[in-house]
């Protein structure tokens, strides 16, 4: 599985969405991505890539696309 597939899987499994829905997905854009869902997503990404997000990055991880930028900070190339 590629890093992008693992990244996508964290979203699809956390929120029950399809891969086609991912490009425009934003925090609070769907009911499942609320504050609780946000922590689900963060935990799934940390598990998938064996990383630990900084607090500020967890707070600013506001969309599927924005999250991609953060992943490179943790040396995860998508």
């Amino acid at each position: 599985m590629t890093n992008l597939e693992k990244y996508n899987e964290a979203f699809t499994e956390s929120f029950g969405v399809t891969a086609e829905q991912l490009p425009n997905l934003e925090y609070q854009g769907i009911p499942e991505w609320d504050s609780v869902g946000h922590m689900q997503l963060i935990a799934a990404l940390e598990d998938a890539f064996d990383i630990m997000f900084d607090t500020d990055d967890i707070i600013d991880f506001s969309s599927y696309e924005k999250g991609k930028e953060f992943m490179s900070k943790y040396e995860v190339e998508l």
Partner: peptide, 16 residues
């Protein structure tokens, strides 16, 4: 701190 969520607490409280 991961399983008791203290590591996430500030972030969770902020987004919540």
């Amino acid at each position: 701190s991961t399983h008791n969520f203290s590591r996430y607490y500030e972030a969770y409280a902020t987004v919540q």
